[in-house]
């Protein structure tokens, strides 16, 4: 049995990598992928704790997270496509409409 801390550390690093990707990449698609990384890190945490506590409710929660992630990816990608249609770019540096 791998100690639960190991999973937690992996999840933390995965989350951090996701955050770095969200912060630093210009491509909206990569940013969306990074968000998926973060969601997966959360899922891993849930499952690790669930396993440790022998509680299968955690898995139900993880299932819900997967569903939400799917919805998020669908809508996020739709937005990227919509933006691309209007502005011909997926470059986040150029998507500063909130400033104006």
């Amino acid at each position: 049995m791998i100690p639960v801390d190991h999973y937690l550390l992996v999840a933390g690093l995965l989350f951090a990598i996701g955050v770095v990707g969200v912060l630093l990449r210009r491509n909206a698609l990569i940013v969306l992928m990074s968000i998926e990384l973060m969601l997966n890190a959360a899922n891993l945490t849930l499952l690790a704790f669930g396993r440790a506590r022998g509680d299968s409710n955690f898995q139900a929660l993880a299932f819900l997270v997967v569903a939400v992630a799917a919805a998020e990816a669908a809508v996020g990608l739709a937005i990227v496509v919509g933006i691309f249609r209007n502005r011909h770019t997926t470059n986040l540096d150029e998507l500063t409409l909130m400033k104006h």
């Binding site: 990449r25 210009r26 491509n27 990569i30 998926e36 997966n40 997926t90």
Partner: peptide, 28 residues
């Protein structure tokens, strides 16, 4: 869901947009 559905969606969108970056890092 992930490797099947979501990633298919991603790849599909990637193919639609089909734009590689010259400067991958948003250094602003």
């Amino acid at each position: 869901v992930y490797a099947g559905a979501i990633m298919t969606l991603f790849v599909f969108v990637v193919m639609v947009l089909n734009r590689d970056e010259r400067e991958p890092w948003a250094l602003r």
